[in-house]
Design a protein around this nucleic acid. Structure first.
Length: 219
DNA sequence: CCAGACGTTGTT
DNA sequence: GTCTGG
DNA sequence: CCAGACGTTGTT
DNA sequence: GTCTGG
């Protein structure tokens, strides 16, 4: 699955890497421990692709309260086209979630060890995501997102059963295309990425605390 | 028809 | 909103 | 994902 | 154990 990740470049560098516009009001710094319910940088396309901030943990538009959001942090690629919560989002609420690494906890005798997984060159990449908007009791609009997962590739499998979908660069534009509604084109994009391009290593248990966001986590 | 759920992961 | 179960 | 809270009534 | 919050 994917319950924590990093984005260690600021939002201007993300915009350059993804060749998208960034609103002046959006200034996000490097992050070493992004956790659910926090704001994440996302790429949306409502005509022109641009950066935006979304809260991680999907709150469907019909939800009565926000608490469901902390459990909807992932959507299974294999079933999302049939799930009531996700089906309609696949049509019209797709997004990219830029990152440059993610954490998975490997079960070992006596506990769990956090592992940090990146591309070999540490390049930024894009998780495939879905988003939705939800109205609070006060009428405020809250936009939230979820990260799509699939079965683990050969590199991640020893660590964990599942991993986030990382879209190859040439799939990003297709995934974001607001005019595209064909599940037969979209769903095949949601595959585990090439294990040869990735590397993994153990990191400090300090990452366990969602409060801790120090750069020493991955130093 | 209406009522009630709608999710993932991991663990047992 | 949309799907499943009764 | 992990961390941390988790309940009511009544009395101080 | 289970739920909520980050």
């Amino acid at each position: 699955m994917c319950g924590r990740f990093t984005l260690t470049i600021d939002s201007n560098a993300v915009a350059r890497a993804f060749n998208v516009a960034v609103p002046k009001s959006l200034q996000a710094g490097p992050r070493y421990n992004v956790a659910p319910t926090q704001d994440v940088v996302a790429v949306l396309n409502d005509g022109e692709p641009h950066l935006d901030l979304l809260r991680w943990g999907l709150i469907p538009s019909w939800a009565k309260d926000a608490s469901i959001g902390s459990r909807m942090i992932n959507a299974r690629a294999e079933t999302l086209a049939e799930k009531p919560s996700f089906k309609r989002l696949l049509n019209s609420r797709r997004c990219l979630i830029p990152a440059d690494g993610f954490y998975e906890w490997q079960k070992v005798d006596g506990g769990k060890v956090p592992m940090y997984i990146t591309l070999k060159g540490h390049e930024p990449f894009a998780f495939a995501g879905l988003w939705d908007s939800w109205k609070t009791a006060d009428g405020e609009v809250l936009r939230t997102c979820t990260i799509i997962t699939t079965h683990a590739n050969d590199l991640v499998a020893p660590i964990h059963e599942r991993m986030p979908v990382i879209l190859p660069p040439d799939a990003r534009e297709i995934w974001l295309d607001p005019g595209l509604h064909d599940a037969n084109i979209l769903l095949p994009l949601l595959k585990p990425c090439d294990p040869e391009a990735m590397q993994a290593r153990e990191v400090s248990r300090r990452v366990n605390s969602p409060q801790y966001d120090g750069s020493d986590l991955i130093a």
